[in-house]
Structures are given as C-alpha cells and as structure tokens.
Simulated assay, not measured.
Amino acid sequence: MLRFRGTFVLVSTLTALFVASAGIAHQAMAQGKDVVVLAAASLKNALDEASADWARKTGKTTRISYAASSALARQIEAGIPADIFISADVPWMDHVAERKLIKPASRSDYLGNQIVLIAGKDSRIDLRIGKGFDLRGALGSDGRLAMGSVEAVPAGKYGKAALEYLGVWSSVADRVAQAENVRMALTLVSRGEAPLGIVYRTDAASDPAVRIVGAFPADSHPAIIYPMALLSTSANPDAQAFVDYLKSPAAKPFFERQGFAVLN
C-alpha cells in the first residue's frame, strides 16, 4: 500500500491539461463538425454512452474533454475553443457566466447527484454517517481519506462542507489525500492506496472495486447540481442539437443508470 506523508495532493500541470484539451478542441473545429464538450470528470461513463447513442442516431460526433470543473472553467476563461460546458457545481458555471463566456438563455440545471463514503470492495469498514461519527478511527493509524481538492473540485467542496456540518472535519483535515478531480479520488480507493474516500454516488457505481459505506445527508452540504450551457463563442449548429438530445427522454436512461437525477 502506498504510504502518504502529510497531506498528499495530486496536482497535474494545468498548462498540460489546457494544451491537451485545446488540441482536441482545435482538431474538432478544424474538422468543422464535431461538437466540443467540456464536462466534469464524474460525467464520463454516462456522457460517453449518451454521445455514442447520439452519434448512432444522427451520424454526428462529439469530442469530450473531462476534468475538474475548476480546471475546465479556467480553460474557458483562457479562451479554449469549445461549444458546451457541463459543470459539477453552480459556482464554476457562475464563474464563466459572470465573465460573459456562456449564452445565458442556454443555461439550465441539468443533473443532480449525491456524495457518498466509499471503501474497497473487500474492506470490512462499517460506519454509520452522522454527527460526530468516528471517521478518523476508521482510517486507522496511517490511512488517508481520498477527496477531490477541497478548495476547487466540486466533490471535494461538497465533502468538506458535509464533514464540517457533521463535526468531524477538524479530526481528519490532516489525513486528507486531495486529488485533482473526483475520478482520481475514486482511483486511490479502488487501487487500495486509501482506505476511504468521498466521491459521487455515480462514481462509486462506475467502479466494481469499491463499495458504498454510506451516503451523506442531503442537508449536510449545498445541493449538488450540474448546470449546462452553450459557450458564447460557439457557432456550431450541432451544439444546440446535442444539448436538446441530452435533455430528451432518449438520453435520460444513460444518466439514471449511473445514479444521476435528471432535472431538465
């Protein structure tokens, strides 16, 4: 098992992420047909399936770049060419909206989610999530709690808020392994590098190597809402068509199977 010293922060170079995503976007725009989507990492399984279904039905294609909503918002602010942004929380959509980088009329609250505490599938950890629950004790003598960055990644922010509400944040703050996005937090638990993690219910459903220990009360953190909008620079007529498809009954099952609540 990997041993952590202090707070372990998984940090990628934002420049590299921007360059990789920009390459995807520039290639798509050069082809003049692909819809370029910037989407929260937690959407990958469901959105990939929905995109493939749309391609089969219409013959049109997408190019999707997944990352933490914070990283995607900064890429948009830096001018990356893309058509659609789907954020894992409202504040990062507000961030780009305040800078007039989306088409306001296109914005909608698209999906809802939950945060859960996970462990490895063979773990015997048994906790009842509630006020003052012994999360630190469950981590053992040197175990870490995997979470998205609590300052930037939506799942990390929701997780910290929930732990503060439940009165246990101060007991585990120095034992948190912060990841650059929620899927990396999931991977730490899946690979046995952290005994526990906080991720979305949809992430837990995507990985058979983990199990849900418990769900955090809905009133312990801000409502988890995924807003979606067209970017102000998008001129691709197929972008609105893809948004319409995502909101249609045809796409709904892909998201519901992963555990999302379809709001719009």
Rank of each mutant, 00 (worst) to 15 (best):
V36N: 10
Q75K: 13
A71V: 13
L38Q: 06
T62I: 13
D53I: 01
Y66T: 12
S42Q: 11
A50L: 06
P81D: 07
T58N: 02
V35I: 14
R74D: 15
L43E: 00
A41K: 02
S69W: 01
A55Q: 03
D83W: 03
T58D: 04
I84Y: 03
A40S: 09
K60W: 01
A40G: 06
I80S: 03
A50W: 00
P81W: 09
Q75N: 12
S42A: 10
N45E: 13
P81Q: 11
L47V: 00
A73F: 06
Q75T: 09
T61A: 15
A41T: 08
V37E: 03
A78S: 15
D53K: 03
A40H: 05
E77W: 04
V35T: 08
A82W: 00
P81L: 07
N45P: 12
A71W: 04
D48I: 08
W54D: 00
I76D: 03
L38M: 09
L38R: 07
S70W: 08
L47I: 04
V35R: 07
A68F: 05
V36P: 07
K44T: 07
D83C: 05
N45W: 06
V37W: 00
R56P: 09
Q75D: 14
S51V: 09
Q75R: 13
D48M: 09
R56L: 15
S42V: 06
A46Q: 01
A78C: 09
S69K: 02
R74M: 15
A50Y: 01
